[in-house]
Computed example of a mutant assay.
Amino acid sequence: MSDDRRSVKTYVPAEQKDRWQAHADELDMSQSEFVRTMVQAGRRGFSLPESSRTAETPSADETPRSHDLEAQVERVLAEGVHSWEELVDALLGDFEDQLEDTLDALQDRNRVRYNGRRGGYALVDE
């Protein structure tokens, strides 16, 4: 790894940042190290062309979504024992946060708009 480092900034809900910090503390990592490690681990779930596969990439029979879900379940269970309902709530909460962030980003780029008359979100006509 090169010593040439760059800063990356992101904004997450305070509750998510607190969960990341607690998990980083459990692993005796700085928050930066934790986020960097989790991003790298998450990238392993993305499909790559066959020519660029390494021993670290998922096998052809794994789908990125199943790998992501497994990682999310493991992350939640690393906090302790959870019932089915608690797992569902934790995973849905993450999805709801991601959906909200995505809709905010799409609205910021004027790709999606909330339409009160229609009672929901709609694509902005180009």
Rank of each mutant, 00 (worst) to 15 (best):
R5T: 12
R5I: 14
R6N: 15
R6Q: 15
S7W: 14
V8N: 15
T10R: 14
T10W: 11
V12R: 06
P13R: 09
P13S: 06
P13N: 07
D18N: 10
R19A: 10
Q21E: 09
Q21K: 10
A22E: 10
A22I: 10
A24T: 07
D25E: 06
E26L: 12
L27R: 09
L27V: 08
L27P: 10
D28M: 10
D28G: 11
D28R: 12
D28P: 10
D28V: 06
M29P: 08
M29Q: 14
M29G: 09
S30W: 07
S30E: 08
S30C: 03
Q31M: 08
S32R: 12
E33Y: 04
E33G: 12
F34M: 03
F34K: 02
V35D: 09
V35A: 13
R36D: 15
T37Y: 14
M38N: 08
M38H: 09
Q40H: 15
A41C: 13
G42F: 07
R43S: 14
G45Q: 14
F46I: 14
S47C: 11
E50M: 07
S52A: 08
R53G: 04
R53L: 14
R53M: 09
R53W: 06
A55K: 12
E56T: 11
E56S: 11
E56L: 13
T57M: 04
P58C: 09
S59M: 13
A60V: 03
D61K: 13
E62C: 13
E62H: 08
E62G: 08
T63C: 01
T63D: 05
R65T: 01
S66I: 00
S66M: 01
H67Q: 03
L69C: 02
E70A: 08
E70N: 03
A71G: 05
V73R: 05
R75N: 01
V76A: 07
L77R: 05
A78V: 04
E79G: 02
G80S: 02
V81E: 05
H82A: 06
S83Q: 03
S83R: 01
S83P: 02
W84M: 02
W84A: 10
E85P: 00
E86T: 01
L87P: 01
L87F: 01
A90K: 01
A90V: 00
A90H: 01
L91S: 00
G93H: 03
D94Y: 00
D94T: 00
D94N: 00
F95E: 10
F95P: 00
E96D: 05
D97A: 01
D97C: 00
Q98H: 00
D101Q: 06
L103A: 08
L103D: 05
A105M: 09
A105R: 04
L106Y: 08
Q107D: 09
D108F: 02
D108Q: 04
R109W: 11
R109K: 09
R109L: 08
N110Q: 05
N110T: 01
N110H: 04
V112K: 05
V112N: 03
R113K: 07
Y114R: 06
Y114C: 05
N115M: 08
G116N: 04
R117Y: 12
R118Q: 11
R118M: 09
G119P: 07
G119Y: 05
G120T: 06
Y121W: 14
A122S: 14
A122T: 10
L123M: 10
V124W: 03
D125Y: 11
D125C: 13
E126V: 12
